[in-house]
Design a protein around this nucleic acid. Sequence first.
DNA 1: GCCAACGTTGGC
DNA 2: GCCAACGTTGGC
Length: 163
Amino acid sequence: MGAWLMKSEPDVFGIADLAERGTTGWDGIRNYQARNYLRDNCKLGDLVIFYHSNAEPSGAAGLARVVGEAVPDPTQFDPADDHFDPKSNPEAPAWLQVELAFVEQWTEVVALSEIKADAALEGIEVARRGTRLSVHPVSDAHLARLVALGRSKGVARTTPEAP
DNA sequence: GCCAACGTTGGC
DNA sequence: GCCAACGTTGGC
């Protein structure tokens, strides 16, 4: 089973929002490499590290799970939406989204500074300089380590779906 | 708010 | 198809 890291700005949609809503369409992805991951590699049941970017501090905030595979992202056709893409053809939608369900929220985020300082997380994509990709794979070992670090902060809320 | 990194666009 | 200009991301 695959594992992913997906970024969101908590001011826009954070893990607390997902916890309240239960599930959400992961919309607004407008990068081809991220889109290809969603389309080709993101499978039902995959775990997702929910990462807060542009936050204070930025870091891993909890877990979600893929509960719906890629479908067209409706926001690309909505002129009122920030992610409207007038070039996208409804017959062949350019942009996709997956459905995520809330799994677990930690009391505090595992800050990027801690991720970078942790020897067991060496090489993790999100800690690499210049990494901007908002959806990318995470190895099983890095996932397990991040979950352990997150839980060491305390579990704010969890679900029976937690690993 | 600054700015480095990097993806995308568009002129040629 | 090259590559400079531009826009966006995201840490700090």
